[in-house]
Nucleic acid binder design. Structure first.
Lengths: 202, 202
DNA sequence: CGGACATCGAACCGAACGGTTCCATCTGAG
DNA sequence: CTCAGATGGAACCGTTCGGTTCGATGTCCG
């Protein structure tokens, strides 16, 4: 938040404000699409302050991405918890939340995967990997409780549908991608459960 | 290819050589990950030559991406044609080719979608949109010939699986993503065909 | 042979970048 | 009241970037 000149209001609060503002700006403009100077000017913060809190632009990016990953996970878990205990309903809830996200006017794809794509080196790749791990855990749990013979494989298929739909919503302006992905995921779960032999042919 | 000093061998050949070399370099390093100077030095071409052939770095990028899109389409169509006339076999062939691509040591995700993610503005977005259009056409044709009640929707689900698997192969080091996506696509096609009513519930 | 053409190599330009430093200013705690 | 600490504002540095220009060199065609 923009403080007057020399405010000791709360360093942690300043840091949180930078983090929140930078999250949106770096997401909309891309990691290399906005410089530290413009970043600071827009946030109403001096470069020295940013440097003292995050050490470098890369440090800021790392903090932003980790915070974003936490926020997304909380958002997904909340959507799952809001649904009934039925795995089908929870799976549907995950993709319904996805559709809702895609419809936001500021939607620009997954900020974490975008960041990992933008900087081939750097911390973004690690954050993206862990982020996908965590999302996979949620989907694996749903698949397992649904009684899937191979929850891990099914969860990876769900995750592919999820990230694929997000890419299509972004790069193909496909507003129904999430809905179709949801239907595909449900059909997949249904057919996996009802099929007696999981067809061990590769 | 690197010509001695003042060679009039063939301007078109020079252009093609630049295009081929730049394709690999821009793919591996990212659009902003390598400058025009290093690009020219690695290719053994002077900046003036590159500038005369492509006008600007953006012009080079546009040419590279359009050539890449053409190449990918030809590659997909060849894989489809190599399979039997059976839509199931052709769908499997598309994802088998995907798996083969993911296993290449130089694999770095889809170069076109990566480019579109790297430069939020610019021609990459358009190329990516058209590229997805063309891929959708191929999948829609397969779905239609398989007798799907809604080939367009099914094709979008296939495409989501395809791009999702590519993202997972890149950002999650998931070597089996393409195989699982293939199985999911086949199961989806099977269940869509065999299911009498396509469940008009959104 | 001679001139048009393509190319290389190098120097150069202005702008933007990430990062650093200095200092006046304001707040809150003692 | 006083002082340590946090901040804003601005200047500054070295680097890199995309792009431009110029002269020397080599090749092909008439």
């Amino acid at each position: 938040m923009p403080v007057a000149k020399g405010a000791t209001l709360d360093p942690a609060q300043t840091r949180a404000g930078i983090l929140r503002a930078a999250t949106g700006l770096l997401y909309q403009r891309g990691l290399d699409g906005i410089g530290v100077a413009e970043l600071c000017a827009t946030m109403g913060v001096s470069k020295e302050t940013l440097y003292r809190h995050f050490g470098s632009k890369e440090g800021l990016v790392r903090a932003v991405l980790e915070a974003r990953s936490q926020r997304i996970m909380a958002w997904v878990l909340k959507a799952v918890a809001a649904a009934s205990d039925e795995p089908y309903a929870q799976l549907a809830a995950v993709f319904d939340a996805l559709a809702q996200w895609h419809e936001e006017p500021t939607f620009r794809g997954c900020g974490i995967l975008n960041a990992a794509t933008q900087q081939h080196e750097g911390p973004a790749r690690l954050v993206a990997h862990h982020h996908l791990d965590r999302q996979l855990d949620v989907l694996t749990d749903i698949a397992r409780r649904a009684g899937a013979p191979n929850p891990t494989h099914l969860a990876k298929q769900f995750l592919a549908l999820r990230v694929g739909a997000t890419v299509l919503a972004d790069h193909h302006a496909d507003t129904e991608a999430a809905l179709l992905a949801k239907q595909a995921a449900l059909a997949l779960l249904r057919s996996t459960i009802t099929t007696p032999a999981p067809a061990p042919r590769p």
